[in-house]
């Protein structure tokens, strides 16, 4: 297929990004609230409820243990919603992707613009939640201020996985599988609510293969005073997966929309 390996044009991708920013600037109030209450409720239920019984994990108060992980999960949910239903809608229902592809924007630019946007949206959610937990006094280290770029990286990773899935499924119904078999288990077992260091080795190995696990570790390190090598290692894992998967939505959408 011609141009299967062509690199995206950043200016073209940013045009798609700006379109999304324009739409978001109109709806952000209504859009921000629900996804923002979600981690807040978990923080209250688990941190303040369960946290009364489990005082500390590895010497860290339970609330402080889970709070940074919830920043990571806010990123995961935001990027996944954006690249699941929203992207499917633009691809199959409103045919917005068709109209964009009839301009000088090519599939690889469209994919890049959409991923950058989903990453941006994820950063907005994750950072908002970071500000909230800081206000609750749940962040120990000033290094937490360095979190947003890592939230962007995590957002891009989840966005890429999400768009790869969306570009391959025939019907919207398939998102049930994505969320109940992939996103929700990651949320529960990704290391937000309990640490892996005392669990059997096989459990650690399984967790290592999930992206949320690495983003949670990055966020927790930064919030509690980081081990630079751990941050770099986990961030590199996310970057490598994102880079490896990028071509999946490009090739799939090209087949689907301009075949």
């Amino acid at each position: 297929m011609t141009g299967a390996l062509s690199l995206p044009s950043l200016p073209a991708a940013l045009r798609v990004w700006r379109r999304n920013l324009r739409v978001f600037s109109k709806i952000w109030r209504g859009a921000l609230l629900p996804l923002f209450f979600d981690p807040l409720f978990y923080l209250v239920a688990m941190g303040f409820g369960l946290g009364t019984y489990i005082a500390h994990i590895n010497g860290v108060p339970y609330r402080e243990f889970i709070a940074p992980g919830l920043c990571a999960s806010a990123v995961m949910w935001a990027a996944s919603f954006e690249m699941a239903w929203n992207a499917f809608f633009k691809m199959e229902e409103t045919r917005l992707y068709d109209s964009i592809l009839a301009t000088p924007i090519e599939v690889e630019d469209l994919v890049t613009g959409e991923l950058l946007w989903a990453g941006t949206r994820a950063v907005i959610y994750g950072t908002t939640f970071l500000i909230v937990i800081s206000a609750f006094g749940l962040v120990e280290s000033g290094w937490a201020a360095a979190m947003p770029p890592f939230l962007l990286l995590g957002g891009l990773c989840f966005a890429t996985i999400g768009l790869a899935y969306t570009s391959l499924i025939p019907k919207m119904d398939y998102f049930t599988f994505y969320f109940t078999l992939f996103i929700t288990p990651m949320f529960l077992f990704g290391g937000i609510f309990f640490p892996y260091d005392k669990l059997p080795e096989w459990a650690q190995v399984v967790a290592w293969f999930t992206p949320l696990y690495h983003l949670v570790l990055v966020c927790r390190e930064l919030a509690t005073g980081p081990d630079a090598a751990a941050v770099a290692g986990n961030a590199a894992w996310l970057a490598v997966l994102t880079a490896l998967l990028f071509s999946v939505p490009v090739v799939a959408l090209r087949r689907r929309l301009v075949a």
């Binding site: 045919r95 917005l96 068709d98 109209s99 009839a102 301009t103 000088p104």
Partner: peptide, 16 residues
């Protein structure tokens, strides 16, 4: 494509 104008058969206006 930079030099074309396209009116598709099916409306794909930006609903948002």
């Amino acid at each position: 494509k930079a030099r074309l104008g396209v009116v598709p058969q099916e409306d794909n206006l930006d609903r948002e």
